[in-house]
């Protein structure tokens, strides 16, 4: 019985049911995990080009990172321009704020087309990773 439950839990986890959230205006007030994120982990995600992907399009105050993008506004000052709740929605699903943005929705698995096998059913970042990124971006006060 325990084994069955474990199997059931494992398949549930791999299907990655997303945490539900409630946008209010252009923001998501509550942490997706109920916990604050970790600033250091957030920085590592933001600067990782396979994980956060942020620097492909954005630049930011990361002197050690060469080859930053200029498709999108700099991340410098993001923590002054937006509140925590606004940052959360802009990462989770920026297209809710601006339907024409090229910013991908980092926490969404529906309404996508031809997702590669390795990525199916998975958001770009997990809820915990998004909280880490939000926590880090809030420290970028310019």
């Amino acid at each position: 019985m325990t084994a069955l439950l474990l199997v059931a839990f494992a398949s549930f986890a791999s299907a990655q049911t997303l945490v539900s959230y409630t946008p209010v205006g252009d923001a998501i007030p509550n942490s997706l995990t109920g916990q604050p994120g970790d600033v250091q982990r957030g920085r590592a995600i933001v600067t990782n080009r396979q994980k956060g992907l942020c620097l492909l399009c954005h630049s930011g105050p990361f002197a050690e990172e060469r080859f930053q993008g200029d498709l999108a506004p700099t991340l410098a000052g993001a923590g002054s321009r937006w509140t925590e709740a606004q940052l959360r929605l802009r990462i989770v699903d920026s297209r809710r704020v601006n339907a024409d943005t090229i910013m991908p929705s980092y926490y969404r698995i529906d309404s996508l087309n031809r997702v590669g096998a390795a990525w199916q059913g998975k958001p770009v970042l997990t809820a915990a990773e998004i909280e880490d990124v939000v926590a880090f971006l809030l420290t970028l006060k310019e």
């Binding site: 498709l71 090229i102 991908p104 087309n113 997702v115």
Partner: peptide, 16 residues
């Protein structure tokens, strides 16, 4: 638009 990142060709190569 395609893929987990949900981009079309035109979003980069026409618009940007």
């Amino acid at each position: 638009a395609m893929g987990q990142l949900n981009f079309s060709c035109t979003q980069c190569h026409d618009a940007n």
